[in-house]
Design a protein around this nucleic acid. Structure first.
Length: 417
RNA sequence: GGAGGGAUGCCUGAGUGGUUAAAAGGGACGGGCUGUAAACCCGUUGCGCAAGCUACGGUGGUUCGAAUCCACCUCCCUCCA
């Protein structure tokens, strides 16, 4: 297409959110003309979203900022069925209670990225369980099932791959795409939603919804997918030693979250700034041009901005300040995780490896011992290689804490109580 | 329904009665070099202070000794009907 007419498309194209779209020109025209209502669906399979969901969350944010209306669809109903896309085996089925608990826990994250309310471009959050659970089987099959060709369903990637590998695919999962397609039509009916977005693995499911909308509602619906984000070294983004990078602060501290972004590879900085922050594009371009050690400034800005969105400006500043003290001055900051230790115990002396385990720097005593033996352990920034070393009250600094480190980046504090 | 094959540590994947806490690679972690980057080089990678304990799908058995042999069970794959 030529230069997009709508702010929305111009913005997301420039920022690298676009992978595929069912009809870019028509969508552009619609977005230029008025408010577009669009939705993205989220599974409730876990208690928190993680960095892998960030592209789509930011997509909703960009929509809202360019004057459109985002819908967050919680998959309370579809999670009961399980999306077979990209999976070798059926997921374990979650109980209703688990799904409800996950949904409640996820909900809070969105409030940091979107403005919810009743206004014309305020975001809304809905749960597809509201309409899916009450569907009557026979009427549903007659009204909607007849529009799905099994021949075509079998050719969809999500199904085809399973069958080609001779992996089992239950009839339950086979229905997932029908339900997702129905969601789209239902959201169109309820909210005038005309666009579904999602990750590139959702393309098939999204297109089904677009087709169904044309058939049963005579509506022109649109689908748009985001690219799968990998790091410049080719790794799937968001995987670290401690597992996924969660957005909920109780599952990953703001400090850790800030560190995750601070450790971005050079080659990814520009791309991530465009995708995951609100910074204007000319500012991103300037930061991206920095070379050598200077690019660290860009990484700090990236970490600040992304953490501020997720955990608030104050938490981001605290993390940044702690990082500055920890890495640039070698002192400590307030955002480091603190473990309480009984004062009498500390007075007697605690074996360093036990202290490290208790502070969460090692999973087992053995791991901590190996770390010490390997020269990766430090007490108050002094390397310790003696396995039998004890931490005592004498190690307490002026602020009443001892700083333990595993490697150069992982730090924790012990506080005597 | 019949005949074969398979299930190994975070993952892939060797192995086959004792020297196997289990080759190799990946990943991860630590060290070095740097810029809290990448690449590269080196080390570590079940639990336990230790004696030792647990581990090769599950349950029993054979044996001085089993991941390795036998029986049954579960799940998966291939071919035939």
């Amino acid at each position: 297409m030529s230069e997009p007419k709508s702010d929305f498309l111009r913005d997301i194209l420039a920022r690298g959110f676009m992978h595929q779209c069912t009809d870019l020109d028509a969508l552009d025209a619609a977005a230029a003309k008025g408010v577009v209502t669009a939705y993205i669906g989220y599974d409730c399979t876990g208690p928190s979203l993680h960095v892998g969901h960030m592209v789509s969350i930011m997509m909703l944010r960009r929509m809202q900022q360019t004057g459109h209306k985002p819908i967050v669809l919680m998959g309370g109903g579809t999670t009961k069925v399980g999306d077979p896309s990209g999976k070798d085996e059926a997921r374990q089925l979650l109980s209703d209670e688990q799904i409800a608990a996950n949904m409640a826990s996820i909900r809070a994250s969105f409030e940091n990225y979107l403005t919810f309310g009743d206004g014309p471009n305020d975001a809304v959050m809905v749960n597809n369980d509201d309409w899916l659970s009450t569907l009557a089987y026979i009427p549903f099959l007659r009204d909607f099932g007849r529009h799905f060709s099994v021949n075509r369903m079998l050719s969809m990637d999500s199904v085809k791959l399973r069958l080609e590998r001779e992996q089992p695919l239950s009839f339950l999962e086979f229905n997932y795409m029908i339900l997702q397609a129905y969601d789209f039509v239902e959201l169109h009916r309820r909210y005038g939603c005309i666009l579904q977005m999602g990750g590139s693995d959702q393309w098939g499911n999204i297109v089904n919804g677009v087709d169904l909308g044309r058939r049963v509602a005579d509506a022109q619906l649109f689908g748009l997918t985001t690219p799968l984000i990998t790091t410049a070294s080719g790794a799937k983004m968001g995987k670290t030693a401690s597992g996924a990078v969660w957005l909920n602060p109780d599952m990953r501290s703001p400090w850790d979250y800030w560190q995750f972004w601070r450790n971005t590879e050079d080659a990814d900085v520009g791309r991530f700034l465009r995708l995951f922050t609100d910074l204007p594009l000319d500012e991103v371009a300037r930061l991206e041009r920095l070379e050598g050690a200077e690019i660290n400034e860009a990484k700090k800005i990236l970490a600040n901005e992304v953490t501020a969105l997720c955990h608030g400006r104050a938490a981001a500043q605290e993390a940044a300040e702690t990082a500055r003290k920890t890495f640039e001055e070698g002192t400590t900051g307030d955002a480091l995780p603190v473990t309480q230790i009984a004062a009498p115990r500390l007075a007697e002396g605690i074996l360093l490896y036990e202290a490290m385990r208790e502070a969460g720097l090692a999973a087992s005593n053995g791991e901590a011992r190996r770390l010490i033996k390997g020269g990766g352990a430090r007490v108050n920034d002094t390397a310790i290689s003696d396995e039998a070393h004890k931490v005592t009250s004498a190690d307490l600094g002026g602020d009443g804490t001892v700083k333990l480190s595993a490697g150069k980046k992982r730090h924790a504090l012990l506080r005597a109580v």
